[in-house]
Design a protein around this nucleic acid. Structure first.
Lengths: 270, 270
DNA sequence: TAGGATGACTACTGGCGAGTATGATCCTAT
DNA sequence: ATAGGATCATACTCGCCAGTAGTCATCCTA
């Protein structure tokens, strides 16, 4: 054990999120809602109450005159460190599995001790939850981006799927597909379910739109969405072992498969 | 840094104190590692000590007449009970997750006690392994069945996928997709990897054949297999929650999606 | 009918790991 | 320069659970 304080490297970008300090436990492990209402859910799905909506994403808003201006800097540092903890957790879960990762492991990876981790996070469960949220956020960004494109729905769907694939190939993706609700409290579990559903509904909607605008072959949106999402989710399972392709390449390959279908086509195209 | 395994009784550091204890019991018939050596592995790899080599698969023969003089009836009973243990384990894993299932749980479900379970199985890890094998066996059966059909490769593929989907909707399917190698000893892990690869290769081969015989649109067999398998594997994740369709219906729906593809077709068919 | 094989139970150990009590140290404001 | 909060460490508690020891009960075979 090094007694010397090497101080964790805390890499990463600052999100400058003012975080209501809800350190004291005693209630739902999920922190109280903050500035979620204005950002509003991008997709049509409604977000479960009580969820602190994560980083506001691309909408760069300045959280203005904090009455707590005193420790503005400090606050920012804290958030940076908190994210470092989450990332470290994601990495560890990814490599050793959730249950085989102890909080001591995560702490060690950050060169701190367990209580330090607990200072930024209420419990292990929440770590997993935050990893999930981080992944969802990336996927949401994909939906947002695609929404404004003026192209046929099938191509918007492609854009979403590319984002989706990239997330699945990331460490957060692994967390997303491996969460088992049995490991989470009912609260967390239902929140996660809601987010999953939100994504699912988003995909279905794009499919429906595609069928309507004629860019997608008539099909059952539900089952088609299941098939697409399943393929992509599964990336998280094998990508660790086999990184011979980039996430983008995988996405394109899958899209080609999805688009063409197995059945031979008269008019073969790229 | 030592990779921690779940609750492995063997700690990284040599204690050398209790080593003598673990041996020299009354020679349990199950974990006698001496017996494993001569029985020799049926598969090509060397089998971990104590691992009962699973059903030999495509060769399709039952475990041969044991030269044990003991009553055959008894032997059969034992096998029946052993399978009951495995099924109970699969059920419990399925509902509570591997790590959240204790062997006491499994024992309780069978209305026996933990040592009884250990009488049929060497450890928890092996239980998971056996569940996996059970699933693989079902899928192998699908391949066998399809192999003899005299139809285009794409339709043989359909047959395989239907079996596959059915397995994934079963309790064993869940075990198959949720095994994390970190939970298994290296031996087990590599066996499982081999079986996964076997299935993957089987699907790729069917795809290649389909491309050759013209029943499948030209494509990259590898990525196509990934996409197909991913969709089906994912069934195991959501089927518990949503049993509104039978496995066969799901399979057919997926096959329709895969066959047609997203892109509109001139000649729309069923 | 003895004696071994088989099957099962009670009652443990041993260690891991989540989470905490307590207090030292540093930072910032007054 | 000092109070009070922020940050982090040492050193625990405590429950769970895989796996074992030792012991009976029963059945089959010689």
């Amino acid at each position: 054990m090094t007694t010397r304080r090497a101080r964790a490297p805390v890499t990463g970008k600052a999100k400058t999120r003012v975080d209501a300090r809800t350190r004291s436990n005693g209630g739902s492990p999920v922190n109280g809602r903050a500035a979620a209402a204005d950002a509003k859910s991008v997709l049509d799905g409604d977000v479960a109450p009580g969820v602190r909506t994560p980083a506001p994403g691309l909408a760069g808003d300045r959280p203005p005159p904090s009455p707590w201006r005193a420790s503005r800097e400090r606050q920012r540092d804290r958030e940076v460190k908190r994210e470092a903890v989450i990332r470290a957790a994601a990495h560890a879960f990814n490599h050793k599995g959730y249950h085989n990762t102890s909080l001591d492991d995560i702490a060690a990876a950050l060169e701190v001790t367990k209580p330090t981790v607990y200072y930024y996070v209420t419990n292990k469960e929440q770590l997993l939850f935050e990893c999930f949220v981080a992944g969802v956020e990336q996927i949401r960004a994909g939906f947002r981006e695609a929404r404004d494109m003026e192209i046929p729905a099938r191509e918007r769907l492609h854009a979403v799927l590319r984002h989706y694939a990239k997330t699945m190939a990331s460490e957060f993706g692994w967390c997303m597909v491996r969460v088992e609700e049995q490991d989470l409290s009912p609260d967390m579990s239902s929140h996660i379910k809601a987010m999953k559903s939100e994504i699912d509904q988003g995909i279905r909607r794009l499919i429906r739109e595609g069928v309507q605008d004629g860019s997608i072959h008539p099909c059952d949106p539900k089952m088609t969405a299941f098939a697409l999402a399943g393929s992509l989710n599964w990336i998280a399972h094998w990508y660790r072992e086999n990184r011979s392709m980039s996430a983008a390449e995988i996405a394109d390959a899958f899209i080609t498969v999805f688009d063409n279908g197995l059945q031979p086509r008269r008019s073969a195209r790229s």
